[in-house]
Simulated scan of single mutants.
Amino acid sequence: MQLDRRRFCTLLSLVPLMALSRWSIAEPREVAMETLYITKPDGGVPNSPLPVLIYHHVIAPEAVDNADYLEHLFTTNGWPPQWRYGVYPFTHFHSNTPEALGVFAGSAKLQLGGEKGNIIQVNVGDVLLLPAGVGHKQVSADENFMMVGAYPPNVTADLCHDDVAKLAIRTKAVAKVPLPETDPVTGHSEGSMLLWRQASDNSKK
């Protein structure tokens, strides 16, 4: 199933990516962003009323070390990076935290939302911002594929499998996860965070 692009948008304003890497400073640049709504549960995956945010071309062309660049960016914007790895080849999600995934090498196809979910391709420079509860797994990848994973401060992500028997309790847990204070890519409390706040408010009406 292809990515639903009905919610596609492009941020034409300059996004100040001012993260300092060891070798270069990122200049403010235009960053394209897609939104993907996966609101309905799939099996034991609760998913979320908040949209998945997919940023493109986040890494500056002059960056010498892609992983280092993303780690500095996430750290500067209040999302401490916790690992460098790929994505597990089974459907899983986190019921206690959103997750930022930055591709620093290779490319892969990921399935979002559960076993019946959307399959998208991610490439170097893409960053996925996944709300708590959204299922994800790696369908295929080239041998170089690697990501940086980051979370809001003082969070250790749980690992939840697609378990229908636990859907109700995990849906309640996801609903209690607080919204992050900043965006891992822009560092702002505005922009994409507004999309999450608006979606959160609408889900409570």
Rank of each mutant, 00 (worst) to 15 (best):
Gln2Thr: 11
Asp4Gly: 11
Arg6Val: 06
Arg7Glu: 13
Cys9Arg: 12
Leu11Gly: 01
Ser13Met: 14
Ala19Leu: 09
Ser21Thr: 07
Ser24Gly: 09
Pro28Asn: 01
Pro28Met: 11
Arg29Cys: 08
Val31Met: 10
Gly44Thr: 03
Val45Asp: 10
Asn47Pro: 10
Pro49Asn: 07
Val52Ser: 03
Leu53Pro: 07
Leu53Lys: 02
Pro61Ala: 10
Glu62Ile: 02
Asp68Ser: 10
His72Cys: 14
Phe74Cys: 10
Thr75Ser: 15
Thr76Gly: 15
Gly78Thr: 08
Gly78Cys: 07
Trp79Asn: 08
Pro81Glu: 01
Arg84His: 05
Gly86Thr: 06
Tyr88Arg: 03
His92Pro: 03
Phe93Thr: 04
Asn96Met: 04
Glu99Thr: 12
Ala105Arg: 07
Gln111Thr: 12
Leu112Phe: 12
Leu112Arg: 01
Lys116Leu: 08
Lys116Ala: 13
Val122Thr: 08
Asn123Gln: 14
Val134Phe: 04
Gly135Pro: 11
Gly135His: 00
Val139Ile: 12
Ala150Asn: 05
Tyr151Pro: 02
Pro153Met: 12
Asn154Gln: 14
Thr156Tyr: 13
Ala157Tyr: 08
Asp158Phe: 00
Asp158Val: 09
Asp162Gln: 00
Lys166Met: 00
Lys166Ser: 08
Arg170Glu: 00
Thr171Gly: 00
Leu179Gln: 09
Gly187Phe: 04
His188Ser: 15
Gly191Val: 09
Ser192Phe: 07
Trp196Tyr: 11
Ser200Val: 03
Asp201Ile: 09
Asn202Lys: 11
